[in-house]
Structure formats: structure tokens, C-alpha cells
Design a protein around this nucleic acid. Structure first.
Lengths: 211, 211
DNA sequence: GTGCAAGTTTGCAATGAGTGCCAACTAACA
DNA sequence: TGTTAGTTGGCACTCATTGCAAACTTGCAC
């Protein structure tokens, strides 16, 4: 993965990684707000000014990779069967997201989850990327089902799905961590009820069309 | 409304109002980021330090009153009929929101809408209050229907409703003109589209918008 | 290799939000 | 008239973030 890079790119990737790692260390030890960008840069052995050549803001450290949810949804849309309804496609995308362990680099993911609960600016940022992802999914879904969905309906559909899942998740994760299995199950149960009007009844991938 | 206040409260209310008005003037003239808190305080004829005795952050200027959506939802829950389902109650709450002119103080509301589109920190803040309102509604709804809804399902249900409406609304307002009339119209269209799946069934709300 | 252009690193100086501290001031009330 | 509690606003400070410019490095061509 590090091969095929020019020296420049290689060094750049290393510095970036050093910044992320240093930040994770300090965040874990001292918390988000107590850690200054100057601290992070120093720990990564670069000048403070250099930090901003890699990340525009402090929050960006916690949201590095492209969102896995978006990719899952894109894949689900791309891999749809000829008789799938839009709602079925979304259901499949969401179950994929539930499956994979949230996302890569578990260290950062854990910190992100923690600071979303603790730090307003991080929470705001998370909600913004979620909103962006949602809009992007809606756009692609409408493209994939030009006969069934106009842009507005697609956005409403995706909003309902994502809203239901995140609503349930917020309550489930509010005070305390739990084992992933029971969370997944609880989310599925709750969203099944909440989304019944959109989905029809017992719909599963390959099952009867709803709506 | 200004009566029955002590002199102290009266002055405090006046200063607060002066700050909001000054901010609105400057925001309209120069934009959000170009206006500094020092500017606003000066225009309101108070010291910069005093500003922070009234608003904790600059964004707070744009989100002053308690959210009207929350009140509408609380009213709808309180005024439910003996045979209403949770979905019917939510439906009525959201139609009320659609009805009344978005919310009070149209000046600020317009600025808010503008800066939610333009300024990330404002957008983040808006999403956070929305998320909070949503959770609060879910909590109360679950309380009102202890037999039908557990906390998680309630959160999923509210998330689905609100997510659908805001998803649709975002698309409708995206590039869009932002004159007051078209906003109102967009809200109506969004609720109509977003709530369609629920309206078709056993739900017959008192004041629901037609499709 | 040499050397130039493009990309990178940093220090320095600013700006602006937000906070702690503290002294002056004022409404509330006995 | 005092005492007390709430309000005001100056000062100094921390931090994120940006613009600028000089010193370096790497990529690439000759």
C-alpha cells in the first residue's frame, strides 16, 4: 500500500498518520478539548502551522476516511435486483452497515463515538456529515429508480430510514455501551415498526415487494 | 408583556433585544462571519464582555426562542384522543408545524435559514437542536403510549417522521430562492410528500395537509 | 549531476471567539 | 440608609485558524 508512491507522497502519508496517531494518544489521555493542536503537532514532531496543511480543523482528525455508510449504500444500490423496490435496497444497505464493525480504524471510531456524546462541536460535525451522506444516497437512489422516485420522495424515504435508525441508536447508546448483537437486534425491531408504512410488511431481500 | 417585571428584568430584556436587533442588522448588511461579536456589542451599546452574559456563543443569537416544533408536538401529544395511535399524534404535530408560519420573529427565521445553508457552524448548531428536540418528543411520546411504545421504538418512529420531512425539505430548499412565501410552500410540500406513506392507512388526522 | 519549478515546512503576526478575574455600579429590600 | 445580590465591562489570556514569506525538498529535464 505504501509502494507506488513518490517519496513526496510517502512522506506526506507518514506525517498524516503521525498526526492522527499522536492525536489519538493525546485525546485518549487528556480528552478532546484539553488537547490543543499545538500539542498534537508537537507530539507528531511537526510545526503547529504544518498541522493545517493536513487537516483544516481539529474535528477533521476524527472524520478522516470517506464514510463507510455511503459506500455500503452505493454498493447496495449498484447491486440491486431487477425486482427490488427502493425500500428494499435501503434495508439491505442498512443491514450491511449494521454488520461491519462500524468502520475501520477502531481506535478512532471509539474516540469519535465518545466525543460525539461529549463535545458539541464534534457532535455538530457528525450530524453534518450524516446529513451530507444522506443527501448523496438520496440522489443516487433517485437516479437508480427514475420511474418510482422523484428527488423529493427519495430524500424523504432515505430521511425516514436514516432517521429511524439513528433515532433508535441514540437511545440505545445513550447511557451505555452494550454488546453489538443486542443493539443490532433492537434496532431492527424498532425500525421494523417505525418504517412499516414505507416498507409494507415483512419485506426482506428477495421477498415480496412492498409499498 | 413588559409589565410585571422588576426594573432589573426589564433592562435585561431590553439589552437582550438590543443585541438581537443589532445582530440582525449587521448580519443582513455584512453577513454572519464578517460580523464580529465586538461589532454587535458596540452596535447594541454594551461592552463586548457583556455580550457573553446574554448569549454563550454567536450562534445562540440565531436560536433564541424555545423551539416551536417542540411545543407543537407536546400540544399534540397532550391533546390526543383516546383512540389515536402514536403515528396519528405525530402526524398531527407535524401538520401543525407545517401550518403555522414556520416560526416567530420572521426576521431571525429568515437569517437562520440563510446561514444554515451558508455557515457550517450554524448548520451544525441547527442539526443539534433538531436532534435534541427529536429526542425530547420521542421521550414524551413513549410516556404517552406506555403500552404501545418502548423508548427505542418511539425514538425510531419520531426519527422516521422527522427524518422524512427534513430530508424532503432539504431538497426542496437546496438551491432555491428563500423568499418567505416559497419557504412556506416548500414546508407544506415536504410534509405532504414525507407523510404520505402514513396518511394512506388507518390514520385520519384532524388537520393533515392533503397530498 | 545541475538547476529550476513545484510542493512542503515553519515561524511570525493577526484576527476573532470565548473565559476568568476583578473592581465599579445599581436595583432590591430590610 | 445599608447591605446584598446581580450586572457591567475592562484586561489579560488561551486557542483555533489564516496570511505571508523565507528556507527547504523533491521531481524532472537537460
Amino acid at each position: 500500500m505504501l509502494a507506488r508512491m513518490s517519496l513526496r507522497e510517502l512522506k506526506r502519508a507518514r506525517t498524516r498518520q503521525a498526526l492522527v496517531t499522536a492525536a489519538a494518544d493525546l485525546f485518549e489521555r487528556d480528552g478532546y478539548e484539553q488537547t490543543t493542536i499545538a500539542d498534537i503537532a508537537a507530539a507528531a514532531e511537526v510545526g503547529t502551522r504544518t498541522f493545517f496543511g493536513y487537516f483544516a480543523t481539529k474535528e477533521d482528525l476524527l472524520f478522516p476516511e470517506t464514510d463507510g455508510r455511503l459506500r455500503a449504500a452505493i454498493d447496495a444500490i449498484a447491486g440491486r435486483g431487477p425486482h427490488d423496490t427502493p425500500a428494499q435496497v435501503l434495508l439491505r444497505a442498512l443491514s450491511i452497515v449494521g454488520d461491519d464493525s462500524d468502520d475501520l480504524s477502531g481506535r478512532l471510531a471509539a474516540l469519535r463515538l465518545r466525543f460525539i456524546a461529549e463535545v458539541p462541536s464534534v457532535r455538530g460535525r457528525a450530524l453534518q456529515t450524516q446529513s451530507d451522506v444522506q443527501q448523496e444516497i438520496a440522489r443516487r437512489l433517485a437516479e437508480a429508480f427514475p420511474d418510482e422516485l422523484d428527488a423529493v420522495t427519495s430524500a424523504a424515504l432515505v430521511g425516514a430510514f436514516v432517521g429511524a435508525v439513528t433515532g433508535a441508536l441514540q437511545v440505545l447508546l445513550r447511557d451505555r455501551p452494550r454488546d453489538p448483537g443486542s443493539v443490532q437486534e433492537a434496532v431492527e425491531r424498532a425500525t421494523a415498526v417505525a418504517l412499516r408504512p414505507w416498507v409494507g410488511h415483512d419485506v426482506r431481500p428477495g421477498g415480496a415487494p412492498g409499498v
